[in-house]
């Protein structure tokens, strides 16, 4: 399952962060690490971007970017 396929309110654990170098590293530096629990807080009114909570902190990212993050059930 990809992060971009998750529904509002759904919770899961990060399995893998893919994507190009700088983008991937930025995500890691912000705490998007293997094993971290993510919750999809909501999608923006126009369905893109989406807001997730990670370690109690709210982060937004685009749907196409969320498609680089592979999730698995906790």
């Amino acid at each position: 399952m990809l992060l971009s396929e998750m529904n509002q309110g759904q919770e899961a654990v990060i399995a893998k962060v893919g994507g190009a170098g700088a983008f991937r590293r930025r995500l890691l530096e912000m705490g998007f690490l293997r094993g971290a629990t993510l919750r999809v807080e909501k999608y923006a009114p126009l369905k893109d971007p989406l807001e997730v909570t990670l370690n109690g902190c709210h982060v937004s990212l685009r749907v196409e970017e969320a498609a680089h993050i592979v999730m698995e059930d906790a």
């Binding site: 700088a22 983008f23 930025r26 995500l27 912000m30 971007p49 807001e51 902190c57 709210h58 982060v59 937004s60 990212l61 685009r62 970017e65």
Partner: peptide, 9 residues
């Protein structure tokens, strides 16, 4: 650029 942005409290 990637839109990874914090929504601060």
């Amino acid at each position: 650029a990637p839109f990874v942005m914090e929504l601060p409290p």
